[in-house]
Design a protein around this nucleic acid. Sequence first.
DNA 1: ACTGGATCCTGACTGC
DNA 2: TGCAGTCAGGATCCAG
Length: 281
Amino acid sequence: MPELPEVEVVRQGLDAVLRGLRLLRTEVRVPKLRWEVDPQLDALTRNQMVCALDRRSKVLLVALERGTLLIHLGMSGSLRRIQQPEALRTHDHLIWHFSGGLELRLHDPRRFGSVLWFAHPCVGSADSDPARSIDAHFARLGPEPFDPAFNADSLHRRSQGRKVAVKQWLMSGTPVVGVGNIYASEALYRAGIDPRRAAGRIGRHRYARLVDAIREVLRQAIEAGGSTLRDFVGSHGDPGAFQQHYAVYGRDGEACPACGAKVRRTILGQRSSFWCPRCQR
DNA sequence: ACTGGATCCTGACTGC
DNA sequence: TGCAGTCAGGATCCAG
């Protein structure tokens, strides 16, 4: 489900709810996710206060006293806050029990998500291997979309010589993070750029439009509470509403809202891409 | 160094 | 009803 806006909405919701609570116990019911959950996870995280909730790319970061929990929701993951006793559902793989009786459940039918633990390095000790740090984990990622480091100049410069379709390049995580299949289509539509165009054959001024379009569409989606398909549940249990605002995504054959031409669907990098053949060049 | 393709997994939906 | 085929929000790994 989750692209950056959905993860950000969940982060904001969880921050209000979890910060200051104590993680009492973790139940790992199904450890085989994208990567196998550490069998020691419960022992490593037990009885620690939640200090903060952050986000990097599409990864939720739960900062505890002695380290950070990374939660990636993959394609089909969702987090539910449980306050009243409620029967477990199929694919509820992890359960975190917090002080105050609050439970958080990770539900992920396709199991493309992941849960990783990074202990704070202890200064001068043997377990402060920098290769296993959070920084190393994220070292290959590009800038956050709202970071000033993401701008027309850097985008244009980094695109030079790239023959890959601009949509695939955007989704690769190198020029920018957090832009998944839906928002790549939507942002390229808003910027008037054909998703099939080679990344290296787009001018600086068009990249300036794209930077603005990416920020705009992500900001609007976050404000709308995150868009959702079937299995997204925010931390308040409210599905988001932004999917009603999709101009082209999933609208194969419908009229472009701007010019009325038929929206087309093309496969790029094995992913569906939606675009207007008249507005996008 | 780039690029395209296969891959992990389940569920919803479509057409016969 | 049942069954086969297609598709789905991500991202890593590997061969060429």
